[in-house]
Design a protein around this nucleic acid. Sequence first.
DNA 1: TTGTACGCGTTATCAC
DNA 2: GTGATAACGCGTACAA
Lengths: 358, 358
Amino acid sequence: MEQITIRDVAKLCGVGVSTVSRAINNHPDINEETKQMIMDIIKEYNYVPNNSARNLKRSDSKTIAVLVKGISNPFFGPMIQVLEREVEKKRYSFVLQHVEEEEDEVEVAIQLEKEKRLKGIVFLGGMYSHKEERLCQLTVPYVIGTVNIKLPQKLEQCAAISIDDEKESYRMVDYLCRCGHRKIVILTAARDDASIGKCRLEGYQRALEANGIEYDESLVVRMKKNLQTYTIKNGYEVTKELLDAGREFTCIYAISDTLAIGACKAIFDAGKRVPEDYCVAGFDGLDIAEYYEPSVTTIRQPREEMASEIIRILFDMIKKRPAEKQVIFEAKLVEGASTGGGRRAPSALAGGSSLIKE
Amino acid sequence: MEQITIRDVAKLCGVGVSTVSRAINNHPDINEETKQMIMDIIKEYNYVPNNSARNLKRSDSKTIAVLVKGISNPFFGPMIQVLEREVEKKRYSFVLQHVEEEEDEVEVAIQLEKEKRLKGIVFLGGMYSHKEERLCQLTVPYVIGTVNIKLPQKLEQCAAISIDDEKESYRMVDYLCRCGHRKIVILTAARDDASIGKCRLEGYQRALEANGIEYDESLVVRMKKNLQTYTIKNGYEVTKELLDAGREFTCIYAISDTLAIGACKAIFDAGKRVPEDYCVAGFDGLDIAEYYEPSVTTIRQPREEMASEIIRILFDMIKKRPAEKQVIFEAKLVEGASTGGGRRAPSALAGGSSLIKE
DNA sequence: TTGTACGCGTTATCAC
DNA sequence: GTGATAACGCGTACAA
């Protein structure tokens, strides 16, 4: 089966290559009959245009690429769906590009922009260490989603959309303190993390301070480096160790729902209960947090709205309309059963002296 | 910022384009100093080769593409990881291509093969309705993963790897029957499903028959079409309706773990317990099945092994070695707490006449 | 070891 | 409405 080209089709049809090209690309200035005839031959001979050649030649292409670091992260699923829908609503094509853990997403973006003649780019995940000289190489507008990044002002073609991780983390920990907890374990990222892990840890610290609780390094538990980050298993393993170590605490605040669920399971496996023995809270607002038993108290990020906003802003920039460069969304604390519904105190607190306020 | 090409680089370096090309592509026949000099200039001017042009020109490319229908399906995550690792171990490049729900994966494959000069293709998800004349257009070897498809013998370049869905479904339902259940609800795909939903339903029917239980259409519950298929939410909603309808049963067998978890939650929300009031079983062996509370009895597919095997066979075909065309993996029934651990009968059965055998 | 010239398959720009 | 032809940016015989 030899690769059949546009030239072959032209010959078979007895027309010129440009006419075939016109037929393929729905150009207006072509005889309807000729077009039909050409399309029939194409079908018959199974001709498929070579995309590399098209991309090489085409000047504009109306395609938006979404680069995702961690494609299997359940957090991104619903966002990708919305992005796709919105992009297609604008009659642009949608390219989903997966970026590997060790890969540099900006590098990939630069290549892809040239290869596919992109009109715009969306980054999901990654992007916390911003190498400005690299970012300058992107010549099309791009939006950084879900990472709270401080953008250099001179980057004109760029916007960032996220929640305020520090603030939302504060919100959660403050809530836990008000529930009466004074020994709150935080399940967080590795020490060298400079991304959301850092922000959420800072929110934790500030909330403790605001509630007159001393920051205790021994209650800061970090994910295992030999396991995948932000997985249920990782949350399970570190919590298991924590429990085995006999450390004293009444609540675990995990910086992701997946970690929180792992923590819950470890508690159950140790013969304890949630929330009666330990309260557990997560972060992100994944579906599973709602459907877990007990449902997990979490900070719900408005993912769908954020995705819509990403596309709105991206197209503002593409269309040279004035666009916001930095949008911070408000998240929502969703009270689940894993912290006792926010009303009743877990029995873990019964022996303590703290009263539940509010 | 004008697009800088290989010609510009050549001019800047005072060499010919082929020398630059040699430097980029690590050709052996080039002076080390010249190469270094060229690479420095490239770095300085941020030259990035255009992939479309490369793909167009290159004859061979050593790349494997993995086409995934339903990229956010948690079932595929671990498989993709293994596929990626194995492909890179072979020193081939790895391309992950997402196929949309309404898109035809074979169509996408045909295009991608031409565009990227692929050496091999892996299909994950989709692929149950095999349009043979289309498949013939693929000129490189490909492996269909996770779908139990009967391959036409004349397709030489093609292999399929999966479990035996009917048999494994039988295994599960037979187990449930042996636990004493006689009124087992199956949570399955829509009526028009011709894929795993159909196979697993058939296994259910055969198991009932083998256990002398009459097939009762009213116990066949199908996913809601207006919700996403195989989601927790879908499982939750249909189970909620089922419970509200007051239908009598002692066990729910969901054809995916996500559905099973939704079912559990609906049961909890109705004030009932698992497994004491209703037993629940799932299928697939997702991580969450293990970490849910109670852990969900499920059929665990050996995903990682299957992924390894996919690559092994794909490369057998690429290297023209004799290769198996159809591999059926054995799955494993993992007893969770959601069916009472397989030992004690759920109290739901207490009033019944069935005794637990085995 | 290096440079020139051609062609990969397509689309865009002309003429007709 | 249609056809020839010049790019698009790169890799690679082939000649030097």
